[in-house]
Design a protein around this nucleic acid. Structure first.
Length: 214
DNA sequence: CAAACGATTTTCT
DNA sequence: GAAAATCGTTTGG
């Protein structure tokens, strides 16, 4: 009885997002829903997690900032065409692992880049992975940094986001519209008019949100 | 097959 | 604030 109650409670407090969360067709809406959700990894049995605080939406074939712009379908981008609910991890600048959530139905290559998390579980492990001695915003602020802290690499591309290696959970944390800031994406100046779209969302005032360059 | 480049981070000045 | 680090992916010849 106790076990059942605990399982039930755990289910309510740590609900793994269902596939229907990701297969919705508006990637911007999904992106706005992600801040406040929890990204959990279990790599070689080691658990680390953090609350998502910053994301960017990439709207597929019509978005010049997207890897899938124009329907570009290559070995690297192939996973973006999968049904929503899997990971897209790619290497940037030869050294940074970028973690994305694939969304929309099969055949529509939409994705959301996770740009920042606030550490929650396994902080000691994250410090070790990053060779940090103290917790500071750059530990998990920025897309390459959070992947390194959580142990996410390109080998996890294509993984289901319902586990076991990677999970995204709703733990009942929510934010009001005023607390979620919408603004243009970072590092996509090459995208012309699409660079102006307010596809970046972050939690106002959170220390783990990356700063836009000037 | 060669070459340019990027949804970045860190370090040095 | 500028520059280096660093390599898989993509594109062009």
């Amino acid at each position: 009885m106790v076990l059942v109650l605990q399982a039930g409670l755990n289910c309510i407090l740590n609900m793994i997002l269902p596939n229907s969360f990701y297969t919705r067709t508006d990637v911007v809406t999904i992106a706005r829903d992600l801040p406040g959700k929890f990204l959990v990894t279990e790599i070689h049995g080691v658990r680390t997690s953090g609350m998502i605080v910053e994301v960017e939406a990439y709207a597929g074939i019509k978005d010049r900032a997207s890897h899938a712009y124009g329907g570009r379908r290559t070995k690297r981008t192939e996973v973006m065409f999968a049904q929503g609910g899997v990971a897209y991890v790619y290497l940037c600048y030869g050294l940074h692992q970028m973690f994305n959530v694939v969304t929309n139905v099969s055949g529509v290559p939409h994705a959301i880049l996770i740009r920042g998390i606030e550490p929650v579980e396994g902080i000691d492990v994250m410090l070790e992975r990053r060779k940090y001695s103290v917790l500071k915003p750059s530990l998990t602020g920025g897309p390459g940094s959070l992947s390194a802290a959580l142990g996410i690499t390109t080998v996890l591309t294509g993984c289901q986001l319902s586990g076991p290696e990677i999970k995204v959970e709703d733990r009942g944390v929510g934010f009001s519209v005023e607390e979620i800031v919408a603004c243009p994406r970072i590092g996509v100046d090459y995208a012309g008019e699409d660079a102006l779209l307010a596809y970046r969302f972050y939690i106002r005032g959170n220390r783990f949100v990356s700063r836009a360059k000037k």
